[in-house]
């Protein structure tokens, strides 16, 4: 079973980002996803920087995949995806259909990211015909839905692509044209001052009775809880999961990677270091307890 570092969902200063990936080059992860998936205005690293970083990290023996924006509105944003596809020299994580089409037109292999909405084996097969090599199911798809999809695929004589599941991190729940960080700080999106850089793990949102609920991360909303599928490792193995995705958090990622690295080599499932992911069991995502 491989370990991946999912794309950095937050906005960190340039030096912090580069330092993070310098460290990550030494971690026992097999795959690193790089690039801005949330907001095109975040340019501490420009597109050329991400591409250069990808080339550098590939030298350390990692598979590097360049991730595309989940929501593309402007021509300039589309231009970024075109550059990643043309100059990236590797696989692309396609987080919307624009990226799928651009990969398809140029024959570039791609990973279907969790926002691509692949819910059944026919859709997966269609995308495999277009160049899909690995599939990251959307956040609301748990083990039963994935199993049904796999069984249907095999029953029709198909083969599954590599399967990657979100094993650790805050779940990306929704995307908007609006920037909720800018709204919370009462500044217009077009003059946002890049204030999300002040919230390296997102901006907490609580209910009116003070219960932590969601995280605001620019145009993205995440669940508050850092989910953890570690204890479900036996089930993941049985399901044929090939890659465990760990989403970068501001602190302690080296320990998280070490924890999962140990877990993948051990017959015993590890203790839970985050919160149970209700979606995985076919329940509401935030349902942490049985």
């Amino acid at each position: 079973m491989k370990l991946s570092l999912g794309p950095l969902q937050y906005f960190w200063p340039r030096e912090r980002t580069l330092a993070f990936y310098r460290e990550a080059a030494q971690w026992p992860v097999d795959v690193i996803y790089l690039g801005e998936t949330v907001c095109s205005k975040r340019r501490e690293l420009a597109t050329r920087d991400w591409i250069a970083l990808a080339a550098e990290l590939a030298q350390s023996g990692k598979q590097v995949v360049l991730s595309s924006l989940a929501l593309i509105e402007a021509e300039s944003e589309l231009g970024v995806v075109k550059r990643l596809v043309a100059e990236g020299n590797g696989w692309i994580e396609a987080n919307d259909l624009s990226a799928v089409q651009l990969c398809r037109e140029r024959g570039v292999p791609f990973v279907a990211g969790p926002t691509l909405n692949v819910y059944n084996h026919r859709a997966l097969q269609l995308l495999m015909d277009d160049g899909l090599r690995r599939w990251v199911p959307g956040v609301e798809q748990g083990h039963m839905l994935i199993r049904e999809l796999r069984d249907a695929m095999l029953a029709e004589g198909g083969t599954m692509p590599e399967l990657e599941v979100i094993a650790f991190g805050r779940l990306p729940l929704s995307f908007s044209a609006r920037c909720f960080t800018a709204r919370a700080l009462d500044v217009p999106k077009d003059q946002c001052g890049f204030r999300c850089i002040d919230y390296p793990d997102g901006l907490p949102l609580a209910t009116r009775e003070g219960k932590p609920f969601l995280r605001i991360n620019g145009i993205q909303i995440q669940g508050e809880e850092v989910t953890d599928l570690g204890p479900e490792l036996p089930m993941l193995r049985e399901l044929g999961v090939d890659v465990l995705r760990l989403y970068p958090q501001a602190e302690g990622m080296a320990e998280v990677v070490a924890h999962f690295h140990l877990a993948r080599r051990s017959p015993q499932p590890p203790p839970r270091i985050g919160v149970r992911n209700g979606y995985w069991f076919g329940e509401p995502g935030m349902q942490a307890a049985t």
């Binding site: 779940l171 929704s174 995502g285």
Partner: peptide, 11 residues
């Protein structure tokens, strides 16, 4: 097509 807020809370 990109919103899981309802399913996060209610399933």
């Amino acid at each position: 097509g990109r919103c899981q807020l309802s399913s996060y809370v209610t399933g």
